[in-house]
Write a protein that binds this DNA or RNA. Structure first.
Lengths: 126, 126
DNA sequence: CAGAATCCTGCGAGATACTG
DNA sequence: CAGTATCTCGCAGGATTCTG
């Protein structure tokens, strides 16, 4: 494995920044969480249905990126029409853990954040 | 607190999505992590220095957004020139915990991800 | 069914200049 | 020092069409 400076959040090459760029891309985290929650492999159309709102193009791109990162596997059944199954790798599953934490935090705290936003906006309004 | 549907990752109003949008915005997580790591309040210029690469405009926007969310406090010393201190609120500190987890994961796994990317690209090249 | 190929648009974010 | 106020641009991501 390539060595990287640890704890250097200020380096653009910093792993944390790279991860946040990835996780920040609108659908990545959701994709990992859906697969993790399901526990099994999912087919393209099943994923698309569950991630409502995503376009085919973007889903394809998201899956390719995750496959490239080694976070999920792509398995093609050579039937006609083809069936393609996506599942998390071990590393993908390990990423799901911190993402679940984040999700937990969000569910606990976002409503409060929302309220604070409203208060803040009301104050600034006058 | 406003009630929200839990576990509905598919709803655009879902708290997890909202959080990921926020965390995904390039500098937010880094800002929280820097303040958390420091443990004390930081002044605008200190923050700017530590988050190397960020522009004044974007730092201001980031801080405003976090203040609006109730994740950090803004304290102005009415001197001339003014000194402005930023610090995490309790909720901001609680967000730092899952972010640290993510950071930990990144430091452990991103080098491996990098290697996988290179392998993947080499295969696709031919 | 699972995509590939295009075209198009909004907005996040950088650069620059000015101020109390 | 700690901001506002503009201008600009790239590109993530959406819509649409076509295919093995």
């Amino acid at each position: 494995m390539t060595a990287r400076r640890r704890g250097d959040l200020f380096d653009p090459e910093c792993p944390t920044r790279q991860l946040l760029d990835r996780v920040g891309s609108k659908w990545t985290a959701m994709c990992v969480l859906v697969l993790d929650e399901t526990g099994t492999e999912l087919r393209f159309s099943e994923l698309k249905r569950q991630m409502s709102g995503i376009s085919q193009k973007v889903l394809t791109e998201t899956l390719r990126a995750l496959e490239r990162d080694g976070l999920l596997t792509r398995r093609v059944e050579p039937t006609s029409p083809p069936r393609v199954h996506y599942g998390l790798t071990a590393r993908g599953q390990s990423l799901a853990a911190p993402l679940r934490q984040l999700r937990w935090w969000a569910e606990e705290n976002m409503p409060g954040v929302d309220d604070h936003r409203r208060l803040y906006d009301r104050k600034r309004a006058r």
